[in-house]
Design a protein around this nucleic acid. Sequence first.
RNA 1: GGCGGCGUACCCAAGUGGUUAAGGGAGAGGUCUGCAAAACCUCGACUCAGCGGUUCGAAUCCGCUCGCCGCCUCCA
Length: 471
Amino acid sequence: MALVLYNTRSRCEETFQPLVPGRISIYVCGITVYDRCHVGHARSLVFFDTVVRYLRWRGYEVEFVRNITDIDDKIINRARERAEPWKDLADRFIAAMHRDVEALGCLRPDIEPRATDHIGEMIELIATLERRGLAYKVGDGDVYFAVTDFPPYGGLSGRNLEEMQAGARVDIDERKRSPMDFALWKSAKPDEPWWPSPWGNGRPGWHLECSAMSMKYLGRVFDIHGGGEDLIFPHHENELAQSCGAYDTDFVRYWIHHAFVRIDQEKMSKSLGNAFAIEDVLKEVEAEGLRLHLLSVHYRSPLDFSAAGIAESTRALVRAYETLARADEAGVAAREYGWESPEAAPLVEAMDADFNTSRAVGILFESLREANRALDAGDAGRAAEAVAVMRAVGRGLGLLLRSPSEFLGSYNARGASQAGLAAADIERLIVARREARSAKDFRRADELRAELLGQGIVLEDGPAGTTWRRA
RNA sequence: GGCGGCGUACCCAAGUGGUUAAGGGAGAGGUCUGCAAAACCUCGACUCAGCGGUUCGAAUCCGCUCGCCGCCUCCA
């Protein structure tokens, strides 16, 4: 079996061959920290986290780098609006982003470089491009990349310069040699942050940081570079031009881009004003439910954001944890299949096929049903096998990693508290109902149950007594 | 205008040339239960936006039409 992934550059699925056998280097474009992260960012965070988790589970040694853009126009403008030092603003949103990453159950990258810590590397890269005749300075310190002197320009995004210029919506800057030339270094305007450089005081262009930092940490050629599909052009096209232009390297072997989260058939984005902050969404829904929801659609298809959709995924997740809890109670041996075991083959096949998380989720629910069937039949061995598959899927997708009792406990407690009930209140009603039932007063017993149901609490009568859960 | 993508059951969503079109939710029937709930079982698209074409065979390839979306400007 071989890992196959869709490479934006070739627009084809390709069999993955790492540069160094057994090792994978991956760079993902991270967040520009001028605001809180929204659900669109969550998709990126969760998807690439899943890629890394899966590849590690799959036996690869993965080096994962995700940058933080902590200097750019938006940060400067936002800081000015709020009369806050730009660095404080960036630090604040970095902290918020880290909270979101943790809440979503994402691993931290191995290296999380910040643009402002790499100004020196960026200056060096510009100097190299200048020496090679691909960069030129205009006015009082702006430096541009000369796209017409880099023939492969447009190759990643499948465009050519003539077409782009014909339909260009950008304002023509008369000082540029070609309208498509992009900034490597921007001279500082009054009251803007700046760093000294051979071209004058200023700051780096946006695309530059990813070229400089990815090559610094992963080498001039590395395996995977990822991001949202809106980054294909111009961001990644420009990164490619800078890196290849400077060093005649392949730069990136596989480009992976995920589709957007949409809302009402439209891209979710800050500028459209339809973005939901992760932090706000997680006040209402379980983070792991959101994670499952994000993974239930293949990454190259758009995903519609809706409260109902997340609720459905959450309910499905709860069902999975309930089955794991059942298995624990039945004393089913805790096992997990490694990626090479035959039982894990369907999962590996699904995920090796360009990270088909949707199919992997299907496998999770098939094994879930099998586990329940075995538990119903009292077949602990068969249940253990099915649960082991569930756990393997969970390992690959970053799901079901908490203890069932802990997850269900907090989930149910949250439901109760939303209904304004304490666990003790519910227990008291359960006792009252038990007494009614002993007296064969089923009408009273049913009333008590209906009362709780009205508040979102379901009572279940089992052999070991009555338990409650969130509806 | 250029480039790219999508349209699968009531809803979400896999499948992209070949036995019965994954999985989840909702719905119907059943087992279990004082009644429920949960769990399990059964049922559910003769069909994959529409129309043509290629093929022994297409949801899957090609063409056209309709509808929707994205990139080309900051953007995950």
